[in-house]
């Protein structure tokens, strides 16, 4: 256990814990944007900054709490003038990119300070509807083209974690863009839609209707459940994952309801067998070998 000071209070933390997690655990609100638990932190948005001192009197350092780890005796302050200045500036700058983002609007309220003149009325992020048809409209020449990209990199990191590596950040500086290689619709995209669902500003649009999913300027045929005909997975995704997991395409694209129905038929017919407690039990409870 490591003992450190957080806004004057002594708190305990475990070795290697991030300041962000410690602060949240003890009930501090720290705004974040580019942090996503499924991928490594990047320290890109700088919203989660806090001020730390190695000694009580030493000079303060403004650091991102998503990257900084606990250290014995560290003195952490989650709200100082400097921290506020950075957070307010960051939100204001990001609002210039995505003035309509509801997530950013509420962050702006949270961190206070001057809000940008450019801000318009908020709208909800584009609705993402998994497996059902959706009202979201594909309207973009630039592949994504929704509420405004803040370059948090969550989408590209998730895409890399999935092993697809379809989209990446291209160019540099303020001109950097998330897109498929060369600004073209990404060939390696499987249409999994994870990027759209994780995008904090709703910039990445995903639309699905008539058994077709559209994202990043590409169209994906949705495979329908062999039982009920409900659209389940995009064909590219299903074929790739069926190979990876060694599961047949038909099994992978049956919807849960239909799979449950057919396995219930099997288990219902299994003979009862003795168990340790003398009760009857059915089904292959000990492991399912593929």
């Amino acid at each position: 256990m490591i003992e450190l000071r957080l806004d004057g209070e002594l708190v305990l933390a475990s070795e290697g814990e991030r300041l962000l997690d410690v602060a949240r655990r003890v009930g501090r609100r720290i705004p974040t944007l580019c942090d996503h638990p499924a991928v490594e932190p990047e320290g890109a948005c700088r919203l989660c900054v806090v001020e730390v001192r190695d000694r009580a009197e030493g000079p303060g350092r403004v650091v991102p709490s998503c990257l900084e780890r606990v250290q014995p005796g560290l003195d952490v302050r989650t709200v100082t003038q400097e921290v506020k200045l950075v957070r307010q500036t960051v939100v204001r700058l990001l609002l210039r990119r995505a003035p309509e983002s509801a997530a950013l609007r509420s962050l702006a309220e949270e961190v206070g300070g001057k809000s940008s003149e450019a801000v318009r009325e908020p709208t909800e992020p584009a609705e993402i509807n998994w497996g059902k048809s959706s009202g979201a409209v594909w309207a973009s020449e630039e592949n994504a083209g929704g509420a405004g990209c803040v370059l948090c990199g969550i989408c590209t990191r998730l895409c890399a974690a999935a092993g697809y590596d379809a989209i990446s950040i291209q160019g540099r500086g303020a001109e950097a863009r998330v897109s498929g290689p060369g600004g073209e619709p990404p060939e390696a995209c499987t249409g999994c839609g994870v990027c759209a669902r994780a995008c904090p500003t709703g910039h990445i649009l995903l639309a699905e209707s008539g058994g077709v999913r559209r994202i990043w300027g590409r169209r994906f045929e949705m495979i329908r459940c062999g039982g009920c005909g409900e659209a389940t997975l995009p064909r590219e995704l299903a074929e790739l994952e069926s190979r990876r997991l060694g599961v047949t395409l038909v099994e992978l694209t049956h919807c849960p309801t239909c799979k449950r129905r057919s396995s219930a038929e099997k288990f219902g017919e299994l003979p009862a067998r003795r168990t340790r407690e003398g009760l009857s039990e059915s089904g292959p409870m000990k492991g399912v070998a593929r």
């Binding site: 638990p37 499924a38 998994w130 497996g131 998730l158 999935a162 999994c192 839609g193 994870v194 669902r197 994780a198 389940t232 997975l233 299903a238 994952e241 997991l245 599961v247 099994e251 992978l252 694209t253 049956h254 919807c255 849960p256 309801t257 239909c258 799979k259 449950r260 129905r261 396995s263 399912v288």
Partner: peptide
């Protein structure tokens, strides 16, 4: 928190 709702787990489950 980590789940991205990709749905592959549900697709992979043999029993629904």
């Amino acid at each position: 928190e980590r789940c991205t709702l990709c749905g592959l787990c549900a697709a992979a489950c043999p029993f629904g």
